[in-house]
Nucleic acid binder design. Sequence first.
DNA 1: AATAGTAATGCAAACGTTTTCATTTAATGT
DNA 2: ACATTAAATGAAAACGTTTGCATTACTATT
Lengths: 344, 344
Amino acid sequence: MYGLTMKHKTNVDIIDVAIHAGVSPATVSRSFNHPKKVLASTRKRIEKAILQTGYIRNRAAQAIQGKRSGTVGLIVPTLDNAIFSNLIQAFSDEMRKHGFTMLVTTHGYDLNDEYALLRSLLEHRVEGVALIGHDHSEDTYNLLERRNVPVVSMWSYKRNSKISCVGGENDQAGRAIAKHIINIGHSQIAVAFPNVEENDRARDRKNGVLKYLSENFIEVPDYWQIETAYSVQDARKSAAKMFENHPRPTAVITGNDVIAQGVIYAAQAKGLNVPNDISVTGIGDFSNSASSFPSITTVRMRPNKVGTKAALVLLDRINGDREAYPTRIKVSVEVKSRESTKSI
Amino acid sequence: MYGLTMKHKTNVDIIDVAIHAGVSPATVSRSFNHPKKVLASTRKRIEKAILQTGYIRNRAAQAIQGKRSGTVGLIVPTLDNAIFSNLIQAFSDEMRKHGFTMLVTTHGYDLNDEYALLRSLLEHRVEGVALIGHDHSEDTYNLLERRNVPVVSMWSYKRNSKISCVGGENDQAGRAIAKHIINIGHSQIAVAFPNVEENDRARDRKNGVLKYLSENFIEVPDYWQIETAYSVQDARKSAAKMFENHPRPTAVITGNDVIAQGVIYAAQAKGLNVPNDISVTGIGDFSNSASSFPSITTVRMRPNKVGTKAALVLLDRINGDREAYPTRIKVSVEVKSRESTKSI
DNA sequence: AATAGTAATGCAAACGTTTTCATTTAATGT
DNA sequence: ACATTAAATGAAAACGTTTGCATTACTATT
């Protein structure tokens, strides 16, 4: 017989374990996948054999059966800043709780690249895919539909979305913050948003803001419409340029908290006090927004909740009815008034 | 024959493609894995067949051969804040460039959990694994060695590390920033670090700082040794408490830029000017540290470079000699003096 | 103690590729 | 045109699981 630890066989397989435990491979397999179908005592013997042999099951061989791969794919624009980190962490935690490992990929806001990533995830036979938002290439949508992949879109709710989604209404978020700013007396208002092409979240927010302002007879002149990348650095630079060359607004409404932070820094660097000299708002309510100084007035989009819920929706799809209609969960948005804004 | 698009067969396999292209499955396989081994014209025919059938190759079936799975695993403490985001993005980009998809997992600074994650990654037969730092459980090290997994540790250089590593010397980083602070005249110095158990990066930094200070006859009293989690929020809170209850230092040296940001906010919230009333330093040089206001004096640890290099080291291992000695790449560290510090 | 019914296990055929080896086809030199 | 060599392709045996079906071992019932 064997000693306590097995001879150094490099690749222990299920058969080795079976022999060791004196059962058939089928039983070992079952003890992984349907534990209650195997006698507690045999299971114990198998577990011991696993320990002794140092066996690590091969998910690839499992995946090949066409059922479980134990993985889900996540496609996000970027990992490089705070925007998605809360969301991703929450999604990842929930998925792991259910035994899934996450394949993560980024496309840098390039939707053609996103399609390529989706293909690559499908090559790995992920059991489901999570995406951000609703702007995706036609190829992407076709592929998802054609292969009937369980999928969920995170970050924005859309009434008639083709695929399941979990998120807030971005246009409402925009309207809400615009309303707040007007309510506290501002009318000299600048906006700072990223490029909204291929980015429905930003587009909806921006439209929401501008529309609401316009409905209230406030038009934002071009020189107060700042375009910036999603980074503190770029936002600060763009805002600084605006401050330099144009009359100063009393408030800046930005597309998210990262941009807001950049704008705040730009103002401070110019010697302005936020909020006394100028108010700044974000959207998102990322984890730092409440603890910065000044803390940022923003719209709470509940990234953690979105991530968790989205995971659950996806799991439902994976385990349940593939033909069901999209599940759409609307996460309420709410203005969080903090120190970065002040009434006039 | 077939029409332009294939009948809706749900799971097209390599055999369908082969038939469609009038070749054997072997040739289709080769056209993926060794393209130059198949005639250009046949390859073209195969590609057309792939398009027509909507075939997506099955990496699981490939992985089962024991060779390529096309995946690498990444295990980080958290995705939830800026600390690792630059690093991860860089690592991910480089890996993708080489055709790998990344399985990402987080353990929340729990090293036993890390071991479980490693097992799970190995179940998926990742071709290599990247970890953070050198504090890992014995089980983790044993498993890596036993299975001879290509592995790289990121974020800290260690002269005699068991496994390959890419990073800066954290104790040197600590010494460097302490030196800088002393050089500009400070002697009333507080420090703010996370719990350093199971975290060699933080430990080395903290030791470096305290040791250098001590060598220069500066002792940091207990009430100036702040312990905080890795978050702006917690750092701000801890620093605020210290400001409240104890004499004010002229400088605070912190364990990383996130903590530094929290301390700066705490100071500002108390009406202090950074750096006029108090200097604050970070370590890391994350992407926002140069663009915040005040910009943060820190030690550049080059997260992007570390991520990229680490990917290359790992790829080398994957493709090359598994028995080779660890590759250790030291990334130079350098103090970046910015606005958050001032000489006394 | 015999029988029916259920629970536990084993057998063997998939799953979709890759790769070695053998064979066919094309290219080259005379 | 023919032989020689190299290039391209095909046939078939893996790879390590899972699972439907068949079998055996238990439990409960009379």
